[in-house]
Structure formats: structure tokens, C-alpha cells
Design a protein around this nucleic acid. Sequence first.
RNA 1: GGCGGCAUAGCCAAGUGGUAAGGCAGAGGACUGCAAAUCCUUUAUCCCCAGUUCGAAUCUGGGUGCCGCCUCCA
Length: 469
Amino acid sequence: MSLVLYNDLTRRKEPFVPVKEGHVGFYSCGPTVYDYFHIGNARPFIVFDVLRRYLEYIGYTVTFVQNFTDIEDKMIARANREGITVRQLADRFIEEYYRDADALGVRRATHNPLATEHMDEIIHLVSTLIEKGHAYEVDGDVFFNVGSFPKYGSLSKQSIEELQSGARIEVNERKHHPLDFALWKSKKEGEPSWPSPWGEGRPGWHIECSAMSMRYLGDTLDIHSGGTDLTFPHHENEIAQAEAATGKPFARYWIHNGYLLIDKEKMSKSLGNFLTARAALEKYPGRAIRFFMLSAHYRSPINFSEDSLLQAKSAMERLDNCWSDLRYAIDNRKKADGSGSPEILSAFTALEEKFRAAMDDDFNTAAAIGILFDGVKTVNTYLKENEPLDGKVLDAAVEFFRRLDSVMGILPAEEAREDGTEIEKLIAERNEARKKKDFRRSDEIRDELAARGIILEDTPDGTKWKKKT
RNA sequence: GGCGGCAUAGCCAAGUGGUAAGGCAGAGGACUGCAAAUCCUUUAUCCCCAGUUCGAAUCUGGGUGCCGCCUCCA
């Protein structure tokens, strides 16, 4: 049993074999930091974070690189509009990116390179392309010569002619061919620029990813990922730039996540039908959003809706309840270290194997979540039907969830237990009242706590409390 | 015009040849002072048609519907 993933290069599932045994170089296209990212952008961040975690879970050392595009038309436009520099704009939204990504449980990348900090690599790559006859300069602009790269179109499975026939590209007479794209743009009034052999200017959008990915991961990456809308032209162009320069395969596996739809339509900034992740996070817990994203296969489209998010939230709460019941059992319920109940221990082992099989099959997170819930059922039933509880089983259950969650990242963070002295006092008072059958008073206390977001549960072993999600 | 995706219960969603995971919601029951949580029971023949096969949601062909890429876009 080993990892198989769907490679867009070949349009089929392939066994995963990295260039260097035991190591994975993984590049994922990151955001242009001109605004908050929207919930559709959040999908690749979350989904590829899980892929990265899974690769680590099965033993790989992963170098995960995700860029920030910090120089680009929209950056310039917005900075000008706000009367700040492009640098200031980038700094601000990089910070905002981290804030939202953190809230969504996305682990920090190994490297988050910035285009503006890799001008040497970019210029060097452009120069190489010119030297090798794959690019040409026109008055300070440099274009990639698509005709010089026969493989062009191989990722999107389109020939140059086909791409061109449907194209809605503006005619630019300085280009030799309509599909030629800019590697370097000459400076225009009011734009930041960098010196280059072709004069002052700035890089085109596609070149940074080729330059920076190779800078951190070598000429051949193991995995390159991004949203499916990047397949053409962005990724096609990345391949052309990199392979024309190095003569080596640029990335072994190309994986693209499906769109997030809203009202059955693609969510995008240009359509204006977007919801920022920030706004979504004000409405739903980050873990619920994450759960929602993982509840479908990463290549399928998913539809974002109030209802979907509420469903995800309820489902997540079932998981949370089980987890907190388990912790409560360990802290408060009598336990004995017994034989370890072999049947249950092996049930956990079997479930983890199923989890692995699901994830090995092109990262089937939806199936993986199903297995997580099989674990929930196993634990709940065990907690209900066994007395005394066997410490070994409880520990195995915790271990099971911890291991799976190291990949999924949807369980609540281990937070320092907050001081519950006052809550405990009220609970004691309520239980006194209950003993005297003064249910009016006891319900009053329960309502009072509920208003503060504390939910009580009366169990045979006493009253437990938890905070509302 | 070229390329691609999707169609599974009220809702979300796995499953890609052997008689449908999981979750949400609903119904009934157990437990509870009442709740909450939990457990038990219960809810589908897989868009349509034709074909291949002993056997198809799963393969083939033809429809229908929805979505996307070919332009900045995750």
C-alpha cells in the first residue's frame, strides 16, 4: 500500500515516487497580497496543507514552499489608490494572510518567498531564456517565445493553435505570437522597478514561481499545486520557462484543487461574488471551515453555503464531544490499566490502516473523515459500555485521534484548561439544588451558565461542563 | 470551436464491476427531574435510454442538466 496521486500532467493516478528518496519538494502557488484572501482561495491553502501533513505523516521530510506575489498589476493599482507603497501594501496583507491562515489551521510553510526578494534569480532566469533563444526583448519588455517550446500546451492538453483559436487575448503587436507572454515588463510611470539588463522594470507574473521554486527546491520539484484555474496559462507558462531554461522536467506531479462555488458559480474576485475568509471566520469557527473543505475530495467542486457550513459545524461538534468525553474520562473516571482489551486496540489499528488507505488513494479526505467518525463511534460505545475503563484503551484512543488529527488538523487545540473554579462552584450549588429537587433553582443556574457559553452535561460520574463552540 | 469536470437518500458526501461509507437533518426507543451528550432502531437501487457482463452506481455508446478553462483569477 502506498501513495497514489492524480497527476494532471498525465491525467491519471500514479504511484508517488519523489526525486530524492524520503524527501518531498512541494511548491504551491500562494496569494497575491493585495487584499484579504477569499474563502475560495482558502481551499488550496487548507487542502494542500493537509497533503503536506499527510506526506509527513507517512514519513517524508517535506520542504513546502508557498510564495507571496508582492509585485503585480493589482498590487500597484491598490497601493496607488490607497496612497501607500506597494511594499507597505504587501507587508500589511502578508500579515493578514497569516492571521487568517492560522485561524484555518494552516501550518506555516517551510519558505514563503517574495518575488521582490528574488530579483536576481528572476533576472538570471530571463537572461538564460534569452540566451537559449526562448525569449526576446522588445524595447525593454521581454517575452517568452511560445513557438520555441514544442511542449507548450502539454499540461492543459491544448495545442498552440487550439489555444489561440479560442483566445480572447488583446492584440499586442510587439509580440511575435499572440500567446507569447511577458517575462519582464519595462517600467511605467509611477510603478516600482528594478534594474535589469533590459532597463528598469519588473517581472511578469509567471516567472517568479519558476524562479523561486527552483531556487528552493531544485530544477525538478516533486509536487506543484494550485487551483485548477491556474492550469492555463500560469502553470503552462511556468513549465515553459523552467524547462526551456534547464532542459529538465520541472515538476513530476501537478495537482490542482477544484473550485469553491457559491450559488453554484465559481467564487472569484473578478465576479465579485466572494466572501473573504476573514468574514467567514467571523461567522463560523475556523475548524468548521476546515472541516467543510475536507469533507469533499480536493478535486471536486464544492458549494459554499450557510447550510453546508452549519452541517460541517454540527459534524465537527460530534467529534469535539467525543474528544472531550475522552479527556474527561481520563481525568475523572475510574480507570484501571487492564489487558488493554485487545479487540478494541486492534479496532483502532484497523481504522488507522483504513485511514491510510483512504489518504493513499489520492488524498481522499472525505473517506478519511468517515473513518474518523468510525473512531468516534468506537470510543463513544466503549465509554458507555465499559466500567471500569481501561487506561490502556483510553490512551490508545487518544493516540488514535492525535495521529489522524496530525493530518486533518480539525480537533480543538490543546488549550490550557481555563480556571473553572467559579463554574465548579455554581455546578456544586446546582447539584445541591437538584438533590433537594429544587429544579427551578438548578435550571436557573444552568441557564445562567448557558448565557455565558457554558454547556452542562449530567453524567453518572458527575456534571461536566464545556464551552460552546 | 477546442479541452475538462460534475449528476449517489430531505441536505452534504465517499464508493469506479459483485447487491450502496460517513456526516447533517427527521422519526421511534433507552438514559435524564427536565435537558444536553451518548447508544439502539429507522430513511437510497445511484439523472435518462441502449449496450457489454453471470453480475454495473461503477465499463461502452447516445441523451439531458449543471459547472469550469481557453483573459487577471485558488
